[in-house]
Design a protein around this nucleic acid. Structure first.
Ligand SMILES: [Mn+2]
Ligand SMILES: [Mn+2]
Ligand SMILES: [Mn+2]
Ligand SMILES: [Mn+2]
Lengths: 222, 222
DNA sequence: ATTAATATTTAGGCTATCCTAAATATTTGC
DNA sequence: GCAAATATTTAGGATAGCCTAAATATTAAT
């Protein structure tokens, strides 16, 4: 059984090398300050992690996750984000409160639990902070979802999530014909209040306030 | 922050001294075999627990929980059983599968989480094994709930829980006018299949199969 | 190219938790 | 009441993590 400490190191290495090109090595310095621990501890742990083949480690050059390490990291991220969804959507915690508790819950070991939690939450694809949840096979979209407010005029994107599971926003959206997976394009941005006029799938259009657009997460088509 | 190890020791001492008269000391021997560890480890840990004032410990006589220790134990039992209810009632785990996962979940530290989980589960009073869940103040009924099959003819009792949250049993019961809190009396036990004929609150009577009675938990009136 | 600044590893220690084996204490059986 | 059996503690040692300070390596600046 892996210790909580090892799991937190692996997750941190993943987080710090996310988005960087393949085999990006995380320095002891950066990892130590991320984990608020000493560089000496990181150096020590790097040796242990390399022994267990979770990372490739070259002294003085830092560590990068091995395939085995990446798999572990992604399963931790998956559990973390699923629990965040649970805490937010089912228990009503605010999005700013869920992280610390999920930091503990992510270490619960039970494959079956993760599977059933996922189903119970209806297979969510993003967490309350707008981050993608890796699927059971560990696949995860490269880019972070952006709020609709960041889409410029003419930009085309797909709705991938909503930051507030408050049912009022959801019912507003369904009223306007917008839901998960809806493709839309920003036709114009209205003066004064920055409301968005959107073109939807079948040439319908809809108008949405800035306040609503901030909470809608999109993935831009490229 | 208390370690998982310390919490498991405290919980075990509570479990082993439950039902015994006040200040029942748990021997290192018994605790060691319960926790599947060495007596030497228990002896060592007893000193540490006494230092932290979780137990009263007299060498060669074993340890018993202090008020502070009992409070911690009961909050762990509360969390354990609430999580068991969650796993069973919300995620559909069988009652035989929930223990090991709850053994981990009970160590999550968050007062607010426990409170919200309790509310989410609608303030359950027993877990899927028929054990009482301590309330937020740490109060817990002395006796374990018994199945209705153990109530003898003429015995009067109150329904405190149902072992199967399978909705079929629940709908059968509500159809017969039985729910949580219902007072009933065993009028007779039918021959051959041991079905129970019950007298309910307002002199109504109902018949229930042995199979159903096994899953209904009661607290006998004394 | 040296030197100065910075990053990383090593050395040496500390605590919590475990273990086995040896030393004691307590209890039990005659 | 004493010896044997049993229970408990102590001794001595291991490992995982973490820390500070010292020693090295690497990188940056002149
Ligand atoms: Mn964590
Ligand atoms: Mn998150
Ligand atoms: Mn436990
Ligand atoms: Mn239980």
């Amino acid at each position: 059984m892996l210790s909580q400490s090892i799991e937190d190191y692996i997750k941190a290495i993943w987080t710090l090398s996310e988005g960087k090109e393949d085999k990006y090595a995380v320095s002891t310095n950066v990892l130590a300050s991320h984990l608020m621990t000493s560089q000496a501890s990181v150096s020590e742990m790097y040796k242990r992690l390399a022994d267990k083949e979770f990372i490739d480690y070259i002294p003085y050059q830092g560590g990068s996750l091995s395939p085995k390490g990446r798999q572990l990291a992604v399963s931790l991220i998956r559990k973390h984000r699923l629990w965040e969804v649970f805490l937010h959507a089912k228990l009503g915690f605010g999005w700013e409160e869920v992280h610390d508790i999920a930091e503990q819950l992510e270490h619960i070991h039970s494959h079956e639990l993760t599977k059933r939690l996922d189903a119970f939450l209806d297979y969510p694809s993003i967490d309350p902070h707008g981050d993608y949840i890796p699927d059971a096979e560990g696949n995860i979209p490269k880019q972070r979802a952006k709020p609709l407010t960041e889409l410029t005029i003419g930009g085309v994107a797909k709705v991938v999530g909503v930051l507030d599971s408050n049912s009022k926003l959801l019912s507003l959206l369904s009223q306007k014909g917008i839901g998960l997976g809806t493709s839309l394009c920003v036709q114009s941005i209205l003066p004064f209040d920055d409301s968005r006029v959107l073109t939807l799938n079948e040439k319908q259009s809809a108008e949405l306030s800035y306040k609503a657009c901030e909470l809608i997460l999109i993935q831009e088509n490229r």
